[in-house]
Design a protein around this nucleic acid. Sequence first.
DNA 1: GTGAAAGCGCTAACAT
DNA 2: ATGTTAGCGCTTTCAC
Lengths: 336, 336
Amino acid sequence: MNPTIKDVAKKANVSTATVSRILNGLPGYSEETKKRVLKVIEELGYQPNAVARGLVSRKTKTLGVLLPNVSSLFAAEILNGIEDTAHESDHSVIVCNTDSNGIRTIKYLQVLNEKRVDGIIFTSEVLKKEYYDAMIEMDIPIVLISTASYRYPLPYVKVDDKHAAYSATEFLIMNGHERIAMISGTKDDPIAGVPRVEGYKQALRDYGLMVDEQRITYGIDFGYKTGMMGMEQIINEMHDITAVFAASDEIAIGALSVANKHGWKVPDDISIIGYDNLKVAEMSIPPLTTVAQPLYEMGEIATKMLFKMINTGQTVESRIIPHKIIERQSVKRIEQ
Amino acid sequence: MNPTIKDVAKKANVSTATVSRILNGLPGYSEETKKRVLKVIEELGYQPNAVARGLVSRKTKTLGVLLPNVSSLFAAEILNGIEDTAHESDHSVIVCNTDSNGIRTIKYLQVLNEKRVDGIIFTSEVLKKEYYDAMIEMDIPIVLISTASYRYPLPYVKVDDKHAAYSATEFLIMNGHERIAMISGTKDDPIAGVPRVEGYKQALRDYGLMVDEQRITYGIDFGYKTGMMGMEQIINEMHDITAVFAASDEIAIGALSVANKHGWKVPDDISIIGYDNLKVAEMSIPPLTTVAQPLYEMGEIATKMLFKMINTGQTVESRIIPHKIIERQSVKRIEQ
DNA sequence: GTGAAAGCGCTAACAT
DNA sequence: ATGTTAGCGCTTTCAC
């Protein structure tokens, strides 16, 4: 059995109040008793019970993180940033793999509420009304990562998707490409879908190039398979394309595979630019040029925002994080 | 303010005991009062406080998971299996990124103890004496994944590393290869290092092939860079090699990149077999032949073992999980 | 500088 | 079938 504060108090001949003060650095005891109590704590191997502490203090020093897919590199890097930052401030994080499943998400929100976590980070998914309602009910600080809601006033941390997609397309254009295809993910995803397609179109328009809906391919997610299917379609149906903008690195890597399978050399026969800058981007053949989202930092920033809200009780400003192009070897400069 | 069980009791004109019984499915109330209480719970939006509950029941329904590197695909898949399984049994999981750092690990163990988690899963790292001591002190169920300790009696879930490495090497031999190099990870890692090298040597010996220490390359970890450096060395110093056994998929992918950079075609000029079967293994060019560790399932199995220990209080048998060769396109059959 | 005691929200033993 | 009550291990107010 773990010793309790009472055991410590008894053995040190003080009250539990004094032990508590010493443990929490509050004033109200002499150096001498402090020394004595600390010695007893040491001897007993006493470790305070955080559950009891949480009950009275109404602070559990734990955060909840909701992710659609823990096993993706994307989520893993964000989670890493969150966990490191939480740890620095002595907080634990509970991971919740929502699987993009509505009822599972609601279930998690309920569990996090029952466990009285101090704050929640909600990642990479569209914020449905029912989620928002449940969150409001909980009345604790919440920060969004890589998603945003214009209907609901929750602070978020994300890159400007439209702008980032614009930059990627522009990069291709600056390298001499004029017939550029795009492999998008889910067609009507309001976060990673629509805005990226719009950024792509906008860039083409701004540089006086033709926007052709036929050059845009959609998939069922932002994964490898979507990239493979998109590239198949491009190779089979679009014969004059010189470059493709992939809406994610996984898509880009799927595209790379298919290009390779068909004997197309990247970047000599076709250029590809990705989106995200996952670790795999530098491990691909050839290393992938991509527009980077600083995932780890986004997790870090969101967590710091959350702490600010937790500690001050105030709301905090959303943050648009700058993206940047990471130039590697999947895009070729071509001369007109 | 969240309503408490008292609020519910008062509004429903019953005692808190009755509410508690209804909440926990214990006998002792009429259908009618149950209906009435449930209605009040609904109206008030009451959610039981798991912290208070945990204090009295001494069960927090949360598990702690220690991982050396959350952002690796390897860890992410194990974590995924753990989280899913825990969720099925209504438990939460706290992730702890140890960063392979001793003092950080001890710190986490302490936090998990203070938070009174019901069990711990310790992953992919050598179990030091100080960790073990801290664990014993906590006196809660613990399961190891992808690591084991012969000195300490903790149940584990892992593949037989030596055997798996043997299988990989044997696979190469069966495909006609006789001069096989190996890119290992950390030289004296007792789990993923030494046994895999031994399995490799054993296979060569068993098939009457020469074991040459010069054909083994060591790195600083089991990552991409190690693979790159190893392959550089193989290309520069070992001219008659026809196949290489990489001690991890990341190593294999690093090797793939370097081979490609030097204009060596895989598998035509050199064959490569990996280890792990991460998701990236099928995304590489060419898709990687590898010996699979069922990571997700290992997380699942370990979690179930943990629950068994938690629920029965009994110890449980360690599990050696079968590995298997996943044949893709990075190994060529050669004729003598 | 220190202690007594109430209370956080719940469960469980014991009454009735 | 239902209520009373004593804790679980801690923090915190109020006394001294």
